[in-house]
């Protein structure tokens, strides 16, 4: 893992994060984002509307991308911009693998290209802009990366 490797440099690769797309994650993400569209929690309704099962809403994808970035850069990193484009839907039973590459670093501002793939293809592609204050190099963060396995509801 590259966590703790100091300030970001263009070309740095973020360790991939595997996220099991469980029914629980899809529903918990939808409700936590206040999105009650039935296709995100009611499989029968989703099928009636032409989807094989419930699928993750865009707000959850956005939240997971944000988490992926701050997990890596530590709690002092500040998200400035998250730009995502969706492709293949995240259905229960699938696994999404998030990966990222630091594209550019100017001062304390970095841009990271993020890709999330699942069994159907690219679920999400995007770019995250963040600032990483020099005083907060990841060494002194409690390295959340250590507890990265799996996904979701951790209590």
């Amino acid at each position: 893992m590259t966590v703790g490797a100091g300030p970001p440099r263009a070309g740095d690769t973020l360790p991939p994060l595997e996220i099991a797309i469980t029914r629980t994650l899809v529903v918990a993400g939808a409700i936590a984002s206040r999105d009650y569209q039935d296709v995100h929690h009611d499989a029968e309704a989703a099928r009636r509307k032409g989807s094989p099962d419930v699928f993750m809403n865009i707000l959850t994808t956005n939240g997971l991308v944000g988490r992926y970035i701050t997990d890596h850069f530590g709690p002092a990193a500040v998200l400035r911009k998250v730009v995502i484009r969706l492709g293949a839907p995240n259905h229960p039973g699938d696994t999404m693998v998030l990966s990222g590459v630091v594209e550019d670093v100017r001062g304390d501002t970095a841009t990271v290209r993020v890709l999330g793939t699942n069994g159907l293809g690219n679920h999400v592609t995007g770019t995250v802009t963040l600032t990483v204050p020099p005083s907060s190099s990841p060494e002194q963060s409690p390295s959340p990366a250590q507890s990265w396995e799996g996904t979701v509801p951790r209590s």
Binding site: G63, L64, R67, V152, R154
Partner: peptide
């Protein structure tokens, strides 16, 4: 907190 639980986000911020 509900959001962070759903996302598995443990960021102390």
């Amino acid at each position: 907190r509900h959001w962070c639980e759903a996302m598995g986000d443990t960021n102390p911020a």
